[in-house]
Protein backbone atom coordinates (compact mmCIF):
# COMPACT_ATOMS: atom_id res chain seq x y z
CA UNK A 1 0.00 0.00 0.00
CA UNK A 2 1.24 3.45 -0.93
CA UNK A 3 -0.59 5.49 1.72
CA UNK A 4 0.40 5.54 5.40
CA UNK A 5 -2.94 6.25 7.08
CA UNK A 6 -6.62 5.99 6.15
CA UNK A 7 -7.07 9.74 6.34
CA UNK A 8 -4.28 10.03 3.75
CA UNK A 9 -6.33 7.69 1.56
CA UNK A 10 -9.36 9.97 1.77
CA UNK A 11 -7.32 13.17 1.30
CA UNK A 12 -4.94 12.03 -1.45
CA UNK A 13 -3.03 15.31 -1.03
CA UNK A 14 -6.10 17.38 -1.82
CA UNK A 15 -7.12 15.33 -4.86
CA UNK A 16 -9.26 12.97 -2.80
CA UNK A 17 -12.65 14.54 -3.49
CA UNK A 18 -12.06 14.36 -7.27
CA UNK A 19 -10.77 10.80 -7.27
CA UNK A 20 -13.46 9.51 -4.94
CA UNK A 21 -16.22 11.36 -6.78
CA UNK A 22 -15.08 9.81 -10.07
CA UNK A 23 -14.89 6.31 -8.59
CA UNK A 24 -18.22 6.47 -6.78
CA UNK A 25 -20.01 7.81 -9.84
CA UNK A 26 -18.51 5.02 -11.94
CA UNK A 27 -19.54 2.46 -9.34
CA UNK A 28 -23.08 3.82 -9.43
CA UNK A 29 -23.30 3.60 -13.23
CA UNK A 30 -21.86 0.07 -13.17
CA UNK A 31 -24.38 -0.91 -10.52
CA UNK A 32 -27.20 0.41 -12.71
CA UNK A 33 -25.81 -1.38 -15.78
CA UNK A 34 -25.81 -4.73 -14.00
CA UNK A 35 -28.70 -4.45 -11.58
CA UNK A 36 -31.42 -3.04 -13.82
CA UNK A 37 -31.42 -5.85 -16.44
CA UNK A 38 -30.75 -8.41 -13.68
CA UNK A 39 -33.86 -7.53 -11.68
CA UNK A 40 -35.95 -7.03 -14.81
CA UNK A 41 -35.02 -10.57 -15.94
CA UNK A 42 -35.88 -11.98 -12.50
CA UNK A 43 -39.24 -10.22 -12.60
CA UNK A 44 -39.97 -11.56 -16.11
CA UNK A 45 -39.01 -15.17 -15.30
CA UNK A 46 -41.13 -15.00 -12.14
CA UNK A 47 -44.10 -13.79 -14.20
CA UNK A 48 -43.58 -16.63 -16.69
CA UNK A 49 -43.42 -19.20 -13.86
CA UNK A 50 -46.59 -17.82 -12.25
CA UNK A 51 -48.37 -18.06 -15.59
CA UNK A 52 -47.24 -21.66 -16.02
CA UNK A 53 -48.48 -22.57 -12.49
CA UNK A 54 -51.82 -20.88 -13.13
CA UNK A 55 -52.24 -22.75 -16.41
CA UNK A 56 -51.32 -26.05 -14.76
CA UNK A 57 -53.78 -25.45 -11.92
CA UNK A 58 -56.53 -24.57 -14.39
CA UNK A 59 -55.81 -27.71 -16.44
CA UNK A 60 -55.99 -29.99 -13.40
CA UNK A 61 -59.19 -28.26 -12.26
CA UNK A 62 -61.00 -28.80 -15.56
CA UNK A 63 -59.64 -32.38 -15.60
CA UNK A 64 -61.28 -33.07 -12.21
CA UNK A 65 -64.57 -31.60 -13.41
CA UNK A 66 -64.59 -33.96 -16.36
CA UNK A 67 -63.88 -36.87 -14.01
CA UNK A 68 -66.76 -35.99 -11.68
CA UNK A 69 -69.18 -35.68 -14.61
CA UNK A 70 -68.27 -39.19 -15.75
Amino acid sequence: MYFETWSAVWQMDGHGPYVWAAYSLTAFVIFLLIASPWFRARQLTQALRDDAHRRAAKASLTGENHASEA
Binding site: M12, D13, G14, H15, G16, Y18, V19, A22, Y23, T26
Partner: peptide, 11 residues
Protein backbone atom coordinates in the same frame (compact mmCIF):
# COMPACT_ATOMS: atom_id res chain seq x y z
CA UNK B 1 -0.19 15.06 -11.48
CA UNK B 2 0.04 13.58 -8.00
CA UNK B 3 -2.91 11.46 -6.94
CA UNK B 4 -5.50 12.87 -9.33
CA UNK B 5 -4.08 10.62 -12.06
CA UNK B 6 -5.69 7.63 -10.27
CA UNK B 7 -8.84 8.45 -12.25
CA UNK B 8 -6.98 7.03 -15.27
CA UNK B 9 -7.80 3.52 -14.06
CA UNK B 10 -11.49 4.05 -14.84
CA UNK B 11 -11.32 6.83 -17.41
Amino acid sequence: QGNSYRIIFIH
